[in-house]
Structure formats: structure tokens, C-alpha cells
Amino acid sequence: MASTTPADTPPAPPVPGPGSRSTGRLGDKVFLGLSKGSGILLLVIMASIAVFLSYRSVIALSDNEGNFLTTFEWNTAGDPPVFGIAVLLFGTVVSSIVAMVIAVPIAVGIALFISHYAPRRVAAPLAYVVDLLAAVPSIIYGIWGALVLVPYLEGLNSWLDEFFGWTYVFEKTEIGIPRSLFTVGILLAIMILPIVTSVSREVFLQVPRMNEEAALALGATRWEVIRLSVLPFGRSGIISASMLGLGRALGETMAVATVLSPNFLVSLHLLNPGGGTFAQNIAAKFGEANEFGRDALIASGLVLFVLTLLVNGAARLIIARRKEYSGANA
């Protein structure tokens, strides 16, 4: 928006001296070239990520004896090599869904707290505290999750098993510490809270004051104001915030690699230890992989890349559409 006005002014300023004009033009050309070049470089990087990953994936996939999509095995050192992403796709999606189910309502609550409930004076520092959660490196979440959260969740797990075991999902059929997809989901929920919160908060703060004041003038309570004007206005913002969070959760590596005790089984018993995710599998299998094994891991990484690309792209498109919408309103 701010950049429209300079564009309307003529690009070459009316300078009388021919000498100064030529240097000005040369400098402009160089500078424009440099900055445009960096922009293009970014596009080239994105394109080459896709190309290079695909190239190595093709090498791996051409020798794969199993079906890449449906095989429940990851044996790249075998002869013939057999590997498939079924378990990884399942684990990635399930742990991310658990994370979303936990994180999105809480994040919306925090965003409302900061934008509408907290006393003005403390709202900004509180927002900062939530942002600090985002600054903590994922490996520290990882060891905290593995050494503090996992032992702590044993109580919750046995409680869920006892009272909600009939749901099948919460039935614990294997004994063991809860290094399960469910625990991973909880940890991921904590990790994506900040991004979901900050995007939702931004949207909630954009709600036209008129809408809120109109509701207040009709005698609405604070909750009614939120339900009548804030939440409807912020709905698409919440959706895109959740999708950004989902993108983070899908690609998270270290927190999953430290917490999960992986196996190659698909099970909807979420409390049982086991399962795996794309990123976790890459980090865990990379050390012992030969060159072919690395290509196979790259192939699984390509799937993850496409997955996050789709989710993030969709989220950004929703936000972009919303921007125009709110611009028309303002």
C-alpha cells in the first residue's frame, strides 16, 4: 500500500545536469537489477528444492520393490529394497490432528484473552510471553517433552484408558511409557500455540470498533459482543491461523524424534507407543542409511514438502482473500 505513491512519480527524476543523470540511471539500473535478482533467486531456490528432491526421489523409487504409498515397511538396505510411506503419512496426519484439536481452541482463547479480556496494561507483555514460546528451539521442547512431559503424562494416559477406553482410540493395549502419537500431539500442540495465537490475535484486533460498540450499545455482554461481532469477523483468520499451525506441526522433527518410540505399524490406539512421522523417520534413519537409503528418505521428504506446501499455500490464500475483504470494510 505504502509503495504506490513512489511508483506514480516518474522513475527518472528531472535532473538538469547530464552527468548526474547518467550516474543516477546507472545506479538505478544496478540497484534494480540486484534487488530484482534476489527476488528471482528466491523463486529459483523454491523451484530447485522441488526439482532436486524429485530427481533424487526418482532414483530411489525406481528401485523400490514395495508400493511407495501402501507398504508398511522401511527397509532400504535390504535386497531388494522395500519402503513405503503409509505409516509415516498416518502418523504425521494423526499427530498433527491431535495437536490441532488441542491447540486451536486454547489458542483462540488466549488470543481473545489478550485482545479483549486482559487488562490493557498487561496485554502487551502477555502477548510477548506467548511469543517467547515460539522462540524456544524445538530440540529443547524435544528433551523437555521426553524427560518431563512423558513421565508426567502416564497418569493422564491410564485415566483416559480407564474411562475412555471404550472409544477404541484411547484404549491402551500395550504396556509402556507413553512415547505415543498422542503424547507427540500434545507436545506439538504446545509448540504451535504461539503461531495460532498471534495470527488470531491480529485478526481479532482488526474487528471494526463500530461492530463491537454497536453490540455493546444494544446491551450485549462481553461474551455476546465476541460471539456476535468478533468471532464471525475473525473466522477466516482463525482458519488460516490453524492451517499455519498445521503446517508447523506436520514438519516438526526434533520434538517428535526425541519423544516417539517409533515402529512401523498403523494403529488407531493412540496411547500405544509406536508409529512414526515423515520428519522423525528421516532424522532417525539417516545415520545408518547408505546412499540409496538417503534417496529413499529424500523421497519421503518430498511428500512432506508437498504436503506442507499445500497447507501453507492454502492458509496464505485465505489470509490474502481476507485482506481485501477487510480493506473494503475499513
Binding site: 528466491l42 523454491m46 514438519g251 528421516i282 506442507t308 492458509a315
Partner: peptide
């Protein structure tokens, strides 16, 4: 694409460099 790039998982960035190294 800058927006989309902020969402690239760090492990994919690593795999990209790895594939260049392999090639």
C-alpha cells in the same frame, strides 16, 4: 513464495542441501 517458504520444514531444507551434496 516468501510466505510459503516461511513454512518449509527445516528438515526439508536439510534434504535439499543433502540432495545437492549427493549430486
Amino acid at each position: 513464495f516468501v510466505d510459503v517458504m516461511t513454512g518449509i520444514p527445516s528438515i526439508v531444507a536439510g534434504l535439499f542441501i543433502l540432495s545437492i551434496m549427493l549430486i
